[in-house]
Simulated assay, not measured.
Amino acid sequence: MDQHAPFAPAHTPRPAVTELRLSAFRSHRGATFRLTPLTLFSGVSGAGKSSVLQAYEALAALAAGDALEDVFPDPAACVPEWAGADAEGRRGFRIGCTAEGPAGAVRLDLAVQAEPALRIVGERLTCGGQTLLTTALRDPERSSVQAAWLTAGSVPVTRAPLPDDRLGTSLLPLRVAGKTAGQQLVLAAAEQMVVALRSAFACDPQPRGMRRPVAAGDGRLRRGCDNLAEVLHRTRSECTRRHARLTAAARRGCAGEVAELAVEETADGLLRALLHRGEGRTATPVERLGEGELRYLGLALVLLTGPGVLAMDQAAEVPSAYQSMTVLADGFDRCLDPGQARELVALAVEMAARGHVRLVGAVSDASFARGVEGVTVVDLVP
């Protein structure tokens, strides 16, 4: 860590996104959502549950340095239907968030033009009521925005162009020297926001892919959990305590007796996951499990493992001990029976209480989670 790093003792709060703002995004208008360590968005189809998670994931990707066109491949779909074009035919959307941590509450607000050309037209980073960064589109003919960030030295602010297809906040550590108190505040706030957003893992287990044996690789679980067997092979040898905890979770969420989660190598060198049913009984390959059982196993594995076992792009410059992973799970209850859903929520509550895992999920029916201590249910109405 360099001399300007804001993260020091382990007792300081880990950066986390605690509020999401969809000022104008898809079906949402002027919406603000408070995010607790375990937040479930509930509602019927069309209520906007997936849009909330999509906005969060988009901000996370931008914080990781992804280009705007990669984050929003269909930007017109993000523009609310009620949003009309201005005199120049421009239409867009607005999203933002708040990340709390050692630097306090840091706000990021973003305005994106979707038509006629995709570009960031405005960005604002604030902390404690003080504006730390602003950007604005001055010349539509140029692929840049005019940025101004706090200096608080002999010159109050520093002005320079930034690309209009990247999040300016993520670029500040490369542009700000950190010599003045104002610059150090900018760096601390920007780093906190980037760390909070990048510590996200979007998970959507796909049973069809999970049924197939897989080749050995880097042992990092992918978004669709299709390499479940490979990751189980790793956790079984490297994380025996967590593997035992996962086996215990499987006993409560899979039909029949589960003595152990195991992995075997097939004749062609691939890895296949198995459920050992007990001494003298034939093991059950995971491809024979139901869709709910497979999704349950995938989600349980995500909640029980850390960033080192998940295919996610964390902020490498900050020690993992100072980061809190946020799992984004759209369709969290898809294919699950109420018992499986309750078990996963109980597991999520347990892991969130330890401070290392947060969960933002979308469910069609939150009855299994209502009244559970530690769970916040947000009901959305179309």
Rank of each mutant, 00 (worst) to 15 (best):
D2N: 12
Q3E: 12
A10N: 10
T12N: 10
A16P: 05
E19C: 08
E19P: 02
A24I: 06
S27K: 02
H28Q: 03
G30L: 09
R34G: 10
R34V: 13
L35T: 03
T36S: 15
L40D: 09
V44M: 00
S45P: 04
S51L: 00
E57I: 02
L59I: 07
A60K: 01
D66R: 11
A67M: 11
V71W: 01
P73Y: 02
A76S: 13
C78Y: 05
E81M: 11
W82N: 15
A83H: 10
A83I: 05
A85I: 06
A87Y: 07
E88C: 15
G89Y: 00
G92V: 11
G92I: 09
R94P: 05
A103T: 09
G104A: 08
L108N: 04
E115N: 08
R119M: 12
R119W: 06
V121K: 09
E123Y: 00
L125H: 10
L132N: 07
T135L: 14
R138I: 12
D139Y: 09
R142W: 02
R142N: 08
S143G: 12
S144Y: 02
A148G: 13
A152V: 04
G153C: 10
S154H: 04
V155Q: 13
P156I: 07
R159S: 14
R166E: 11
R166H: 14
L167A: 09
G168P: 03
L171G: 15
L172E: 08
P173D: 02
V176W: 06
K179M: 10
G182F: 05
L185W: 01
V186D: 06
L187M: 07
L187K: 01
P207A: 06
R212V: 14
V214D: 01
A216S: 14
A216E: 14
A216V: 14
L221H: 04
C225Q: 02
N227G: 12
T235Y: 01
S237A: 15
S237D: 15
H243L: 08
T247D: 02
A250W: 00
R252H: 07
A255I: 09
G256N: 03
A259Q: 15
T266A: 14
A267V: 15
L271I: 11
L271M: 10
L271N: 04
E279D: 14
G280H: 04
A283S: 15
T284N: 09
V286R: 00
V286S: 04
G290F: 11
E293N: 11
R295Q: 07
L299D: 03
V302S: 06
L303G: 10
L304T: 04
M312R: 04
D313A: 13
Q314E: 12
A316K: 03
E317T: 07
V318A: 12
A321Y: 01
A321I: 03
L328W: 01
F332D: 08
F332M: 06
D333F: 05
D337E: 05
P338E: 05
Q340A: 13
L344F: 06
V349A: 11
H356F: 12
R358I: 11
L359H: 03
G361Q: 00
G361T: 04
A362D: 04
A362L: 02
V363T: 07
S367Q: 12
R370E: 15
V372S: 07
V372W: 01
G374W: 00
D379G: 10
L380F: 03
P382N: 05
P382M: 01
